[in-house]
């Protein structure tokens, strides 16, 4: 239904194969997709959740991890309200790449963007990155931290809900950064198509 009060854009980034698409599918469709192909460019999903009795619409942009799509994916960072940076706890290289990702985020995203570090695949036995290492990294870089399993649906709901809550608080305090220059009238009546901003809707 369309009577949401807030619209937030969430972008997922991180190496290919860490489980971004699975996280999104788990959250939006409640399933763990079997053997889907790697994301190309950008994928889009939507989900409306309720926070404090108010409807919040999350626009989720799931990006391809591969180097070659970097230029198009970067173009989606800019209007993001929240960026979820994902690594695979059972795969050291995906963790080692985090500084590179941060550099990209630094360069292309709004500096007030909400940043969340996610260590995915906690269900796996062969963990390579201890929880506290991820936590430390997140803390050092001013990010929220959460470990998830898209497979076991662990912390996935919580991840997106916390983002929604956080962003809504920001929005209510009118702290939420205004993206894309023109925000359009906040009363939303004449600009119902406008989704470029936080879209506090009346």
């Amino acid at each position: 239904m369309e009577d949401y009060k807030f619209l937030f854009k969430v972008v997922l980034v991180g190496n290919a194969g860490v489980g971004k698409t699975c996280l999104v599918r788990r959250f939006t469709q409640g399933l763990f997709p079997p053997g889907q192909g790697a994301t190309i460019g950008v994928d889009f999903m939507i989900k409306t959740v309720e926070v404090d009795g108010e409807k919040v619409k999350l626009q989720i942009w799931d990006t391809a991890g591969q180097e070659r799509f970097r230029s198009i994916t970067q173009s989606y960072y800019r209007s993001a309200h929240a960026l979820i940076l994902v690594y695979d706890i059972s795969c050291q290289p995906t963790f080692d790449c985090l500084p590179d990702w941060l550099r990209e985020i630094e360069e292309y995203a709004n500096n007030k963007v909400l940043r969340i570090l996610v260590g995915n695949k906690t269900d796996r036995e062969d963990r390579e990155i201890p929880r506290h290492i991820g936590e430390d990294f997140a803390q050092r870089h001013g990010m929220y931290f959460l470990e998830t399993s898209a497979k076991e649906a662990e912390n996935v709901e919580r991840l997106f809900m916390e983002i929604a809550v956080d962003l809504m608080e920001q929005a209510k305090c009118k702290e939420l950064p205004k993206y894309d220059g023109s925000l359009g009238p906040l009363n939303g009546k004449t600009t119902s198509v406008n989704d470029s901003s936080c879209c506090l809707r009346s």
Partner: peptide
């Protein structure tokens, strides 16, 4: 003047990269 198309650009671009099985 206030109408914006960035959702459409974003979404159509995503569709251009569709990975449907």
């Amino acid at each position: 003047y206030h109408r914006r198309y960035d959702f459409f650009v974003s979404k159509f671009s995503a569709m251009c990269h569709s990975n449907h099985s």
